[in-house]
Amino acid sequence: MKIIVCVKRVVDTETRVKVAADGRSIDLGGVQFIMAPYDEMAVEKAIQLRDAAGTGSVTVVTVGPAAATKELRTALAMGADDAVHAVVEARMGPNATAEALKQVIDGREYDLILCGKQATDEDDAAVGPLLAAALGLPCVAFVHGLTVDGRTAIAEREVDGETERLDVDLPAVITAQKGLAEARYPGLKGIMAAKKKPLETVACDATGGKTELRSLELPPARAAMVKIEPTAAGMQSLLTALRNDKKVL
């Protein structure tokens, strides 16, 4: 079972966002970076599928800044076998990212490509299906359960409150939703081993952008809080305000 996992370096979910002087990006001063949480789940699932198959490999791929080597090493420490890094410093939109990933992946052997459902910076949930289209592969996004049976994967996802179980011809692109796997913490042994695992750097053309990020701003501040007493009368005044002032009831 040969699995490719697309992982992205993103700002830590704890980050308090400030807009940078260019008005189009965030101020990275003091910001910590992590592997996007859904990508971690995808890496974990890939390792589990490889180990269950008893054969094969997990290759992690990123398109991102030189510093993203750190997130690739994390994936290797978790148990991935090798990594491929297309170094691009600038932010890319979803079309360009998928195009760059296609270039990196083309010519490699794989049975399955896993992505996170969404990267927690762009929040597009787009690169997985875009990549599937670019590679001519079937796609299932938002998958929280996955097993592989020969050339078919069985994917589970939630749609409108129901769970769909889908048969998917492999190779395919599948994106990880919460529930797919709980990412392990790499142990010391994994971290040591990761240092010796292959990490290949490749070039890619990152100019396939079709959108332009014109500006970035903070969301409007919320109004001051109104305190409600924890009494029956308080509840009455709350419901009245929700209906008459806010018109939400």
Binding site: T15, R16, V19, I26, T120, R214, L216, P219
Partner: peptide, 9 residues
């Protein structure tokens, strides 16, 4: 960024 910023694209 999970609603911590708003972009115009």
């Amino acid at each position: 960024f999970a609603g911590k910023a708003v972009a115009h694209i």
